[in-house]
Write a protein that binds this DNA or RNA. Structure first.
Lengths: 191, 191
DNA sequence: CGATTCTTTGAAAACAGTCAATCTGTGTGG
DNA sequence: CCACACAGATTGACTGTTTTCAAAGAATCG
């Protein structure tokens, strides 16, 4: 499974064979079965976790016990609650596996040291963080101005085929509409 | 005006007198009059810009020529398009002054070098970036699940008195509702 | 004071959410 | 292997909210 991560690294920067080997030596592989929790509210996230296989969902539970999906993460993404990881504070979100998952993980301390030793790795993470800031800004704007129809179209464009992989009510929660509405939009499209 | 920035710095980290002096020596003060453009679409943002006084708005113009307000920035915030600044790409947004503004600016290269020399400054910026990532996540979630009424309440809580300082239609654009709707919510509250 | 921009109002239409009932598929225990 | 329970999907009627449109009133700026 490390080979998937190695491929990912090679698309993100120039790493020497030695560096790859060093990274490999410190990687921890973890598997999750379907519906298994990866991180719970109140727990601190202590590992960088890269997804080699599978799909996870990140969500919060409000005071009424209702769940709100904040994001989905799948192959070649990073999983979990970044705020908890970086700030060292307890997570306010839950993350769990929607499918069988295989993760490549690194203890936070280990990974931070690696970043100091391997400049390309530090650049990769900085870029990643910057990118996700930019994309989250874009997502705010979309949430604000788009109609339900447009949100639906957008979702399908951004996550092709994900709608066939994840229960409707979770996608509805993610894009901020009701399950009934999502269903109707989906029907309209298939006509 | 630098004293305002100095006060800001002191709340964000421990800076020595020498460091403050070094920062001061490289600062550029700029004033903007009301409605003056600070940054246009297509231009590259080349300065870190801290707001000592005044209020700016950051927005995009869509294919129909309609403006969409992405954010407001005022005293003790940073102005402009961060993506352009960090990535060195042309800005996709406009930023202009809603009032007379005074900015403390630093050329990007200059500031990046300062960060290397002054660890507290680098930490400050990292924290700032991380924070705004986290808060953007919160804002997405709010845009997705809150009713117009709640968005209005939220805005007033987060930006007290800003509603008396900025034209209604810009605030409406920012929170993603029509001017008429905002007006009605505002009336209801005053009853 | 004239032009422009911003705010306010109300009616009609479009839109989205709620609710309740039904349908479907999956997995479990007998 | 069947019957049942359960979670998720689907449907339609109803309700409430939000937008659109049009028009008029205030405020601001040159």
């Amino acid at each position: 499974m490390f080979s998937i991560y190695e491929t990912y690294l090679k698309t993100k920067g120039n790493f020497t064979a030695d560096e790859i080997e060093l990274i490999r030596s410190l990687a921890i592989t973890k598997t999750l079965h379907q519906n298994e929790h990866f991180l719970k509210e109140g727990e601190q996230m202590k590992f960088y976790a890269f997804i080699c296989k599978g799909c996870l969902r990140n969500y919060i539970v409000d005071e009424n016990g209702d769940q709100h999906v904040l994001k989905f993460a799948m192959e070649n993404w990073w999983a979990g609650d970044r705020d908890s990881l970086i700030s060292g504070i307890p997570s306010v979100t839950y993350t769990d596996a929607l499918e069988e998952c295989v993760l490549i993980m690194f203890a936070k301390d280990t990974f931070d040291k690696l970043c100091q030793q391997i400049p390309a790795l530090a650049v990769m993470i900085d870029t990643l963080f910057h990118r996700s800031y930019v994309s989250s800004f874009k997502k705010i704007h979309e949430a604000v101005i788009l109609s339900n129809q447009q949100k639906y179209d957008n979702f399908n464009q951004k996550y092709p085929a994900l709608i066939d992989r994840i229960p409707f009510h979770m996608i509805a929660s993610y894009i901020g509409i009701t399950t009934e509405m999502l269903n109707q939009l989906h029907n309209d499209q298939c006509k």
